[in-house]
């Protein structure tokens, strides 16, 4: 097996297209190295993405945020403006693994590993994140929910990589949150994950809402029926109950060693509701982007 650490996107794409299916991009390696060890993947070339400027760093501007696809969870957690604007995305990212894993794990890797249970992905989908994908065929913008096809499989074509994630500056009255169920407190894989982002009008009515679930289908899913339970309504107990019911109904999980189908479906509703409640609290006392939370 060979290892390359290109310093530019062109060089990386060049290497990946040359070697084809036997090449594998690598960010933090926290999924990839485990897969190499167990023999699930046997690439001939590892292309380390962490030396490429476009995949590193976080930019915060008036237009919003650009998060490099190889940026580690620890860096994301330390980015105060991002924490403030999208606390749900940051809390989901920080749930990945442990302190050690946080030093390596990236959003690009979490997404492209294509696990149905990846923690940051439902939060990113709920927040409306869009990623920039670059490959031999050029550059395209893809909503996060369109990247994962099924377990271990993405819609990226050969030699394409995710370069960064874009999030807008949240409009006034926005709140987001992520909740996950694991039987322990860390070092485990989500049995259910739920991300919600929503926006409240001054009147308290819900103007917009996006709900996404992880670990309850072959890939992270956006659940519009659950979101619609809140949109144009006051988010009262009845509306939240409807959101929970819709989330449970949309869940199409498997029975496995990690959780039963029935359990996952029920808890999908519970967590979607709890995430919505948290998002509401965050949206509640209006915050101006960039100023410290009260």
């Amino acid at each position: 097996m060979e290892y390359a650490a290109p310093r530019s996107l062109d060089e990386a794409i060049g290497l990946l297209s040359q070697v084809g299916v036997d090449a594998r991009p690598m960010a933090g390696g926290t999924d990839l190295l485990v897969q190499l060890r167990t023999g699930t993947r046997r690439p001939k070339l590892l292309v380390d993405l962490k030396q490429i400027p476009g995949l590193c760093g976080i930019d915060c501007g008036s237009q919003g945020f650009r998060i490099g696809a190889a940026v580690s969870g620890a860096e994301i957690g330390e980015c105060l403006p991002l924490r403030e604007a999208w606390p749900g995305v940051v809390e989901a990212t920080e749930l990945i693994g442990s302190t050690q894993i946080q030093g390596r794990a990236s959003l690009g890797g979490n997404l492209c590993n294509a696990s149905p249970a990846a923690d940051s992905v439902p939060a990113l989908i709920a927040a409306g994140a869009v990623c920039t994908v670059i490959g031999p065929g050029g550059r395209r913008e893809v909503p996060v929910e369109e990247v994962v096809r099924g377990p271990g499989e993405t819609t990226l074509s050969e030699a394409e990589i995710v370069v960064d994630f874009r999030l807008p500056q949240p409009q006034e009255g926005t709140g987001d949150a992520y909740q996950r169920m694991i039987p322990r407190t860390e070092m485990d894989i989500a049995i259910v994950g739920a991300g919600v982002s929503l926006r409240l009008a001054e009147s308290g009515e819900c103007l917009a809402c996006r709900v996404a679930l992880g670990a309850v289908a072959a890939r992270p899913i956006r659940v519009d029926a659950a979101a619609e339970a809140l949109i144009d309504r006051r988010p009262d107990a009845a509306a939240l109950g409807e959101l929970a019911a819709q989330a449970s109904a949309a869940a199409d999980p498997i029975d496995d060693k990690r959780g039963t189908r029935a359990y996952r479906s029920r808890v999908a509703g519970v967590l979607a509701r709890r995430a919505a409640e948290m998002a509401l609290r965050r949206a509640g006392p209006r915050r101006v982007a960039g100023s410290p939370a009260s």
Binding site: P183, R184, T185, E186, M187, D188, I189, D256, K257, R258
Partner: peptide, 24 residues
């Protein structure tokens, strides 16, 4: 231990054999 019907252990590792971690 979680066995499948053929008698194969399905959780031969600390990810799915869930011992408590310190923060639990």
């Amino acid at each position: 231990y979680v066995f499948d019907e053929s008698g194969r252990l399905e959780n031969p590792g600390f990810l799915d054999y869930r011992m408590p971690v310190a923060s639990d």
